[in-house]
């Protein structure tokens, strides 16, 4: 398995069970969510980073967007284990394409992958997660987290997909998002519960949903 990884001298991501990410490092580095290290052997050095975006501009963007995620760089020889509040971990291989992920759901990436922020429009607002999502781009592996194992759903021209904003974790590929209203609540007592939002994905790509819903202000379906 994965000799390619060693030849390219990038950190090897593997899952230890479904909730722990083990990364084997030979002098290389990974970026990981601050404080997510649960154990390591060998020699490791930790460095705090400003955030997903690079340099000053990234920092300013962070300020503006209010995205709170802090990232650390871990570098060394040995194995480092990462986990975060017993979240399920899903590995994503990127081959030049772009992954959009809620910043709180990003656990770790190859140091070689570029991370940035992207405007998500209304979805972010409806989730109370800020208006921006983290993007991960390049060639390499990323580990994303979900509350319960994520289900990966394919979106194609004949199969558009509708997702509850609270269950959305990440997506990749060439997808368009739009909002649609979900349920109409008219109850016996006439308490109008208002309407719930759903996100509709069209195009070609993959959507990661989790078997759980964050609290949203979008309403429940």
């Amino acid at each position: 398995m994965g000799t390619a990884g060693y030849l390219r001298c990038v950190a090897m991501f593997r899952l230890q069970g479904s909730k722990v990410l083990a990364v084997d490092m030979t002098g290389d580095a990974v970026k990981a969510k601050n404080g997510s290290m649960v154990a390591y052997d060998g020699q490791m050095a930790f460095k705090k980073m400003s955030g997903g975006g690079e340099g000053l501009r990234g920092m300013v963007t962070r300020r503006l967007t209010g995205e709170q995620m802090t990232v650390m760089e871990v570098k060394g020889h040995g194995t480092c284990w990462f986990a975060d509040r017993a979240s399920e971990i899903n590995l994503v291989n990127l081959q030049g394409d772009k992954l959009y992920v809620e910043s709180s759901n990003l656990l770790a990436t190859d140091a070689g992958l570029r991370t940035g922020t992207s405007f998500t429009g209304m979805r972010g607002a409806s989730q109370g997660n800020g208006l921006f999502t983290t993007t991960v781009e390049g060639h390499g592996q990323a580990a994303i987290m979900s509350d319960g194992p994520a289900v990966v759903l394919r979106v194609s021209s004949q199969y558009p997909l509708t997702v509850d904003p609270g269950a959305y974790v990440a997506h990749q590929g060439n997808l368009r998002q739009s909002f649609q209203s979900g349920v109409t609540f008219r109850t016996l007592m006439g308490e109008g519960g208002g309407e719930a939002f759903q996100i509709r994905f069209e195009g070609d790509g993959l959507v990661y949903v989790q078997p759980s819903e964050r609290n949203t202000i979008a309403g429940d379906v």
Partner: peptide, 29 residues
């Protein structure tokens, strides 16, 4: 449902579902 480590050859490790492969009235996981 997870990716195999180092699977650089596949676009995505985990099982990908679409309406044809999702089960009928049964557990996905």
């Amino acid at each position: 449902p997870y990716g195999t480590p180092g699977g650089f050859g596949t676009p995505a490790g985990p099982t990908v579902f679409d309406p044809a492969t999702l089960p009928c009235d049964d557990n996905v996981n």
